[in-house]
Write a protein that binds this DNA or RNA. Sequence first.
DNA 1: GCCAACGTTGGC
DNA 2: GCCAACGTTGGC
Length: 158
Amino acid sequence: MSQKFWLMKSEPNVYSIDHLEQEKVCFWEGIRNYQARNLIRDELQEGDLAFFYHSNAKPPGIAGLMKIVKNSYPDHTSWDPSSTYYDPKSSEDNPRWFMVDVSFIEKFPLYVPLQELRDHPGLEDMKVLQKGSRLSIQPVTLKHFSIICELAKSSFSL
DNA sequence: GCCAACGTTGGC
DNA sequence: GCCAACGTTGGC
């Protein structure tokens, strides 16, 4: 089993890297897209690393780093009628949506805005830069991971 | 707030 | 299974 790298989007006005820094650990709730669900359910593994991406932010960009600390399990918010993530087609018996637990590693010393990713040689083929890319969980290559940690002046080392 | 790009739904 | 209508995402 080898460690993989991911980029996970969240709108900071809903849940930001600062929230995660305070809480230390959280469950990544509210994934309601099948492609992202399949990645969460089947690919994200305990020990993997993930960038915390601020979407719908000014500017959007990568804010920090976290680690997957629990493999996927059913997203209980999907069968909670009081949750904004409620989905009547999901049930405890037949869960449709899944989530993982993540833990805070670092808020980057330097925020890496989307535009900087666009401008930086070597990152051109990142998924998040592709036109119309809406997937909220994206795989990241080791090469891209390393470049971005450097841009962010991260103290984290593999 | 606009709107392009996707994803989902549902009639047929 | 097609596809039009509708809904959502997310940068700008």
